[in-house]
Nucleic acid binder design. Structure first.
Lengths: 225, 225
DNA sequence: TCAAAAGTGTTAGCATTACACCCATGC
DNA sequence: GCATGGGTGTAATGCTAACACTTTTGA
């Protein structure tokens, strides 16, 4: 903060949030984008985001903008601020600083449509997005990097899946985020060794041999939000 | 960012930066604090910081506030944004969001005195600071955590030392930041194995047996600022 | 019986940890 | 010659990575 009097020059710096919201669809990692309807970069795709209210927590603003602009109704399973972008020229309308957030939406959040102030909202492959407005390409790249880091020592991959899931499904999530193949045996060994998964006995039917279903072990407190 | 029109509600959110600047003094890690002279928390110690100018990069604002309030003249060897604090009640004067930075100052930056808007500026042990204004205790804790993380896979410890240094000195920096003792032999083995240090042949005289001097190997590009 | 996907162990290399004594210098 | 701090090696352990075949099911 501060030391000084009240905002003398700060008066003209606008504060916004942007959200890179990820989910898995058909084996690949997707990110939720909105198509701008007005202002600079009209028609161009961008991360959902907007200005922070005067009494609003930063993460509340991020959630609100995500919901308003994309009409997703599901609760994000993870929401985390990861970097603040403030280069003076990043927005042609003036000095706008944006606190960027990364969110994970659970599987099944498919129906989205444009909300307040945007033409449309859609899922795009996260590693190969369309051209993005402003500096959103850089924001997305950083969000992906953070997601990869979190994968390692948080149990973030589980947030992408329904309550019960198979190990091949979980491995698919890891591979989609890291954008590389993993060894099946080593993956299972490592994950099961952590003792955070328990087999729920049932089996899900598919094409080949059915897979064992797992759920996360209860009662373990993880840091949330 | 945005989607919308210009700052409607954002107009009343002030944007500031705060800086946790670290340096080594007499074997312990210190942080640079300023004593507030007016406003809320007058007399209380706080991290240096202030409002962001309209055309200023965030890290430029951090550097400027650090220099103005503490009169340090040395260039920080590392400056990194690490988290943005925006809880609505964190500043009694209104909604002020602060982008917190972590800085490393090289050894020898001792002379500081209060600058613009503050009574005094002083170094304090980073792990046992005095009571701090606003949410600066939390900011400092997070800065320390980030510093510890960076120590591992950046060469950040070298930034605390002069150009040539001994291995015991380097180990002292690591121990001060991690707040725990390290094994001498393992430390040397690990550091030398990285191949980033070269013995500069000379020796520095002290109390016991003189130590070998090292300098960092040149020509290796590290990410800076 | 065939196709498709699930499941299963072992080995080698590497990094990490723990641990105790001798060395060079100044006083 | 003694106090002070600098310097050195090895063994055990745990983690990581590489690697190929068998099992179960539905069609």
């Amino acid at each position: 903060m501060d030391t000084l009097t009240l905002p003398p020059r700060a008066a003209h710096v606008g504060l916004a949030v942007d959200v890179a919201a990820f989910a898995m669809h058909e084996g690949t990692l997707h990110v939720l984008l909105v198509q701008r309807s007005s202002g600079p970069h009209a028609e161009v795709w961008a991360l959902p985001g907007g200005f922070v209210g005067e009494r609003e927590q930063l993460h509340e603003a991020a959630l609100r903008e995500l919901r308003e602009e994309t009409s997703v109704t599901l609760e994000p399973r993870h929401l985390e601020q990861f970097y603040t972008f403030g280069a003076p020229g990043r927005d042609p309308r003036g000095r706008i600083v944006s606190v960027a957030h990364m969110a994970v939406l659970p599987y099944g959040t498919v129906e989205v449509h444009g909300g307040r102030g945007v033409q449309d909202a859609k899922w795009f492959p996260a590693h190969t997005p369309p051209p993005l407005a402003f500096d959103h390409q850089e924001i997305l790249s950083r969000a992906l990097k953070r997601l990869q880091v979190r994968l390692e020592y948080a149990q973030l991959a589980l947030e992408f899946l329904p309550e019960t899931f198979t190990l091949p499904e979980l491995q698919e999530v890891h591979e989609a985020i890291l954008a590389r193949k993993l060894d099946k045996r080593n993956f299972r060994k490592r994950l099961l060794a952590q003792g955070l998964l328990i087999a729920s006995g049932e089996r899900r039917s598919g094409v080949g041999r059915p897979a064992q279903l797992y759920r996360r072990v209860k009662s373990l407190r993880r840091p949330q939000l």
